[in-house]
């Protein structure tokens, strides 16, 4: 079984379209400069709606992580053990990603990662983290 596909909606379509093309986007408010993720129609800081899409570097650091041994659904049973991390991106927003690594013991808080894209369905690619060297 494959991963559940994200139920893409009007708020997030530009993000997923860019991801499929290998680009990581986030949002920034033109009025107050606030950076936000997940994408939404309004600025969560000032309440305005002048929010623009920005390209992110794809570089970040692990804020926390876990290695999952008990899969939540059938789709993930063949993947255990797998790592999930909360990653603080260089531009100041936080994402959840799996960390692709052959050595789960190398995971550490503060470790630098680089985003790569995993195709998970027709025209859908999931941002994933790879431990940077």
């Amino acid at each position: 079984m494959s991963r559940p596909l994200p139920p893409i909606d009007a708020d997030t379509r530009p993000f997923w379209t860019a991801a499929a093309a290998g680009e990581l986007l986030h949002q920034q408010c033109r009025s107050c400069g606030h950076t936000q993720f997940p994408p939404r129609r309004i600025c969560v800081a000032c309440g305005g709606d002048d929010v623009e899409w920005r390209r992110a570097s794809g570089e970040g650091r692990i804020h926390s992580f876990t290695v999952v041994h008990r899969a939540p659904t059938d789709a993930f049973r063949s993947k255990v053990p797998y790592a999930i991390a909360l990653v603080d991106m260089a531009e100041g927003f936080r994402m959840m990603m799996n960390v692709e690594t052959d050595d789960l013991s190398a995971l550490a808080i503060g470790a630098p990662i680089k985003v790569v894209f995993e195709p998970i369905g027709e025209g859908v690619a999931l941002p994933q983290a790879r431990l940077a060297r």
Binding site: R3, P7, D9, I84, M96
Partner: peptide
């Protein structure tokens, strides 16, 4: 649903 579940969160 979009930014956690595809990663196998529980």
């Amino acid at each position: 649903p979009q930014f956690e579940r595809p990663y196998g969160i529980s």
